[in-house]
């Protein structure tokens, strides 16, 4: 992931210009935006992030539920004092939730919002 969103935007600007020429022929404003390479990039960035991250996150949760159902001896193992694996794993679900929300928000602010705002502004014209 590059930290600089404008670099990616410049990269697609050339292609955008080309598509703008073609857009006169096609119909609605939405169709024009949809054909814009910057929109394809936005869609790609969005899907590339949220689908795998949702899948990994749900797998982590499912692992926890399965362990609760089928690996009770493992979950009963004490880590420190009266704190056992089940409690640590449960708190791990909280940690994963907070972490995922934070990582996604950072990603969205850097890689999605600027591109999305740019396209929205153009559509409003």
């Amino acid at each position: 992931m590059t930290a600089n969103p404008s670099a990616a935007q410049t990269a697609v600007n050339a292609a955008a210009a080309a598509s703008r020429a073609a857009e006169a022929a096609s119909g609605t404003p939405a169709a024009v935006l949809h054909a814009d390479p910057r929109f394809r990039e936005l869609k790609h960035r969005f899907r590339w992030f949220v689908f795998p991250v949702t899948a990994i996150f749900l797998a982590w949760y499912l692992l926890y539920v399965l362990l609760c159902a089928y690996a009770r001896d493992f979950m009963a193992h004490k880590v420190v004092g009266n704190v056992n694996v089940a409690l640590v794993f449960g708190l791990g679900q909280f940690a994963a939730t907070f972490l995922t929300a934070w990582v996604y928000s950072r990603y969205a602010a850097r890689r999605l919002d600027p591109l999305s705002a740019e396209l929205r502004a153009e559509a409003a014209k």
Partner: peptide
Amino acid sequence: DQAFEELEVRALTGAG
């Protein structure tokens, strides 16, 4: 197909 394209644009950019 066109309706879906419109939805995608609106969902991702907020345009409209």
